[in-house]
Amino acid sequence: MKNKQYKLDIAPGVVLALFSILYLARVPSIQEFTGLGSTPLTNRFVPYLWGSVLLLLSLWITVRGLRKRKRYLAEGGKPQKTDILGALKERWEVVASFVALALYVGFMDLLGFVITTIVYVFVQILILTPKEKWKKTYLPAVIVSVVSGILLFYVFRYLLNVLLPVGLLSVFGL
């Protein structure tokens, strides 16, 4: 029964509506330009336009979701509880991947590309591997992470001139 999917309208609708309200609230803080060459439509016009359109669309899908919910309940469906913690637990690999990625880019400046990449690739390989296969994965994961961390750093920093952060390894004069 597709009506169960009303949450896919209500949740994003509410979040996006709040986001568009915050966005619209920031628009008056944009400094307008009124000097020579200024345009009748100022730099606030389009942000107001997009913000309002987004608000309307968000309200549209929220109302649509509420109507779906009403119909679902009228058809004898049971109200569904929102179990955010349960959903996060169910998708722990996704949560862990985002946390690992955030820590990776967050510490890259301090620790440097090589160290963070080695740790990140190793951890991410384990996250993407079913737990029962971890024992067999440790050694290849170490090899892949160390080789990719060092190789990519040298190739991109010294051959392709991408300014990857050196971090702690700068003590070695890299």
Partner: peptide, 16 residues
Amino acid sequence: NFLLPVVVVLCAIGAI
């Protein structure tokens, strides 16, 4: 599971 982490690293390099 081995390929995708390296893809992410390359994505980060692309962004930097």
